[in-house]
Amino acid sequence: MHFAVCDFLLDLVQNSVEAGAANVGIDVVESGGSIEATVEDDGKGMDERELERAKDPFYTDGTKHARRKVGLGLPFLIQATEQAGGDFRISSRKGSGTRVSFGFPVDGVDTPPLGDLPGLFLSAMCFDGDYELVIRRRAPARGVDYEIRRSEILEAAGPLDDASALVAVREFLASHEAS
């Protein structure tokens, strides 16, 4: 099981990238007593049957690891939201993309910690491939409100396979979260 909300989000972004998405959106909003997050992509999507099966921990499409019998990403998130009294929604269309949204009550005893947002956003940009990632983040109580695109980060900092670029971008992301 994942430890923090950020871990669930990174897992979803990894799914999107693996689904061949050219555009991935990630929204994280803390307001009105809840943490709400959405990951949306234009990857290969799923039909109704695949979508139902994706919620089953003992199902995987079997294309990546031939003998594997489990696929735990979405089931972990469903379980965590159910335990904490949060909510989980998923919709998908074959060939056009998938959207996953979830929420946690901010003061729930079973709500996972939010985790390291700058680290999440950095890792979410670091997967191989040519995809756009749009990060939208709001926490009005702390005066946090920003939107960042992977393309503008790549343009300013260069390829994100370089440690010194990664350190610089992490500092950039942390400065947005701290304001």
Binding site: F3, Q14, L72, D116, G119, S123, A163, S164, V167
Partner: peptide
């Protein structure tokens, strides 16, 4: 950085590698 890696703390390992490479001026 799949589900299994994330659940086991791969993000922390990734961060530490980035830091160590940067500190050792190996980038």
């Amino acid at each position: 950085m799949g589900t299994c890696g994330i659940a086991a703390g791969a993000k922390q390992s990734f961060d530490e590698i980035v830091k160590a490479i940067d500190e050792n001026k190996l980038s």
